[in-house]
Simulated scan of single mutants.
Amino acid sequence: MSADRVENFGVPWEESYGYVQAIKRGDSIYLSGQLANDGPKIIGLAPLDQDGQIMDAANTGEQMRKAYENADVLLHRFGASLDDVVEETVYALDIDAAFEAAGPIRKAAYGRDDPQVASTLVGVTRLAIPGQLVEIKMVARV
């Protein structure tokens, strides 16, 4: 089955890693893990110690909010929105910070107190970009 359409943001890591931000096949839209990027700049990068380890996860909510915004931008390019998301996986360096931020941010992003989306929150030891705290992968159906 071939792709109906793909979308990118034109950021350097799309080419260096070799992937698309979103791909629509049939009635499904698959979003790669969304970061808190504004163009090539990552918003709210966490401070790192001399060994490159995260010192403070206080910007988890800020990064999460921007990742949802980026996901919504991509979905709109397909004529969809976060209302069409059926599944999400949130990857976070600090699971406690992510869990604390996730409720209010997810509810605001989805525009309701009971987002109608299957969701999994996963704690990880590292993400792709130093200082990155969260990444959100989604599947939408249209």
Rank of each mutant, 00 (worst) to 15 (best):
Q63T: 11
R141P: 00
A80T: 11
A46C: 05
V73F: 12
N8F: 05
V86K: 07
A67Y: 04
F78T: 02
W13P: 07
E135Q: 12
E15Y: 05
D49G: 06
T120P: 03
Q53N: 13
M55Q: 14
V6N: 06
P40R: 01
N70V: 03
A92Y: 00
S81F: 14
K137V: 15
I136A: 02
Y91S: 02
D84R: 07
L31Q: 00
V134Y: 01
E100Q: 12
L45S: 05
T125K: 14
I129D: 12
L45Y: 01
G39C: 05
H76I: 02
M64C: 10
D96E: 12
D4H: 09
F9P: 13
G26P: 13
L74V: 07
S2G: 11
L121A: 05
V6H: 04
S81T: 15
I54Y: 09
D38L: 14
Q53I: 04
D27G: 10
P47H: 06
T125Y: 11
V122S: 02
G10A: 05
V6P: 00
P115C: 13
Q21F: 08
N8W: 03
R25K: 08
Q34K: 06
Y110C: 00
F78L: 04
V90G: 00
E87F: 15
R65G: 00
D84V: 11
A92M: 01
A98W: 05
A108N: 07
N70D: 06
Y91N: 01
S16V: 15
Y19T: 08
G123L: 02
N37F: 12
A101L: 03
N59S: 11
V20A: 07
I29A: 08
I129C: 10
Q132L: 09
S2F: 13
V122H: 03
K24Y: 10
G18Y: 10
T89Q: 06
Y17Q: 05
Q116V: 11
F99A: 05
D114G: 09
D83M: 04
L74D: 11
I43V: 15
A108F: 06
P104L: 02
D51E: 15
